[in-house]
Computed example of a mutant assay.
Amino acid sequence: MTGATNATAEPASVLGALALELAPGTAPRQAALAQAPAAALAQSIAVDLATLAPEASALDLVLGAAHFDPAELLRPGWPLHRRLEELRERAPRADEPRIIVFGANANGTVPQPMRAELELHGGPLRVLPFALIGDADVARAVAARFEDTLLERGMASAATALQAQDEFGARIEHARYLTAHDLAAMIAMQYDHVGLKRLWPSIETALLAPQREAWLDASPEPLLRYADGRVRMAKFDFEAWRRFDAIESARVAAGEAVDDDARRRYTYFQARQRQYRVVLEAHGIEVESIECGAKQDPRERLC
């Protein structure tokens, strides 16, 4: 993926997010902003982005004035950003660059797809998607500037951070701008810290190279294969797992009897599979469980 997308000659898009790091144990009171406060916040964001890359002022800014879990942005095909592009196409045309905002409607309802999934609420990081769209050469220049600078110097202005805090009813410790690449890199590091490092390459492949395949084949972790837009995960009964697991397969070969440690490790393995499924599905990746018997080759079963 590049910072600027350009499916045809023009226009091109720079995909990004305003990331809000919340104070521990807090959550925003508002899921999305109504039109007036959303427009005011978008204006402040436009000023910030033009300060970081002056060429950004020559592009349309399209903002989703609702906050999401990062996994909702990091999904194959970038559906939230694509929706912003589609909504821009429906907006009235203008001779000058536009600021286009989508949030809650007049009665306070958040329309799909700008409605965050309730199951993914509660995390310490919430993100507002935005896209800068316009001339392809300008978009590429802005994308290059952002990729070089946002991760280190992309803090939102104090005025913008306070505005977001007041309007969303949130206690925000930090507010910063990220490219889609930056957000992916940040989440990859977070997954590393919580023991999900081995799963990230499958998610990354789905995001950045969905036509390729990716394997997770590293016992004692679950066995899975990403291909054709979905993950196929091997499902083992206890005896099949004993032949797959590196430690247990050696014990089977040595003729050792099953003990309580083996059963505890199998229970942990099953919990790990459930955890992987939850994470993958949060990223919009379909997971299919494939039954693998003790006398079957699980890798062949996943192909």
Rank of each mutant, 00 (worst) to 15 (best):
V278D: 13
L207E: 04
E256K: 14
G229V: 12
A94T: 10
D148A: 14
Y191Q: 15
L33V: 12
A94K: 03
A58T: 12
R212Q: 13
A38T: 10
V127G: 00
P111Y: 03
G77T: 00
A106C: 05
E147T: 08
A188F: 03
P37Q: 12
A136M: 08
P70S: 12
Q30Y: 09
D228N: 15
R265D: 07
P129N: 07
E248W: 09
V252R: 15
P28W: 01
V278I: 12
Q30K: 13
L125G: 06
F244K: 06
Q43C: 05
R299G: 05
Q270M: 11
I203S: 06
P79Y: 02
E55R: 14
D260M: 11
L196Q: 14
A141H: 08
L224Q: 14
L49A: 11
I290S: 07
L199G: 01
V287E: 02
D260E: 15
W78M: 02
E55T: 12
P92E: 09
A71R: 15
T267L: 14
G195P: 08
F244H: 13
A214E: 09
E167V: 08
Y191M: 15
D166Q: 14
V138C: 09
L63N: 01
T149R: 10
P54T: 06
D95Y: 07
F168A: 02
R264L: 14
H81A: 07
P298D: 14
N6W: 00
L132K: 02
M1L: 11
D260I: 10
Q163R: 08
H174L: 07
L150T: 05
D48W: 06
R264Q: 14
R126L: 15
E204R: 14
V142H: 01
C292L: 01
P76L: 06
L15S: 07
R263H: 06
I203G: 02
R301N: 11
W241S: 12
R230L: 13
R242A: 07
L216P: 02
A66Q: 08
L74F: 06
R115D: 02
M1S: 12
A19Y: 07
F68I: 10
A185C: 00
R75V: 07
R83I: 02
D148F: 01
R225A: 10
E86Q: 11
E286I: 11
L150R: 03
Q163A: 08
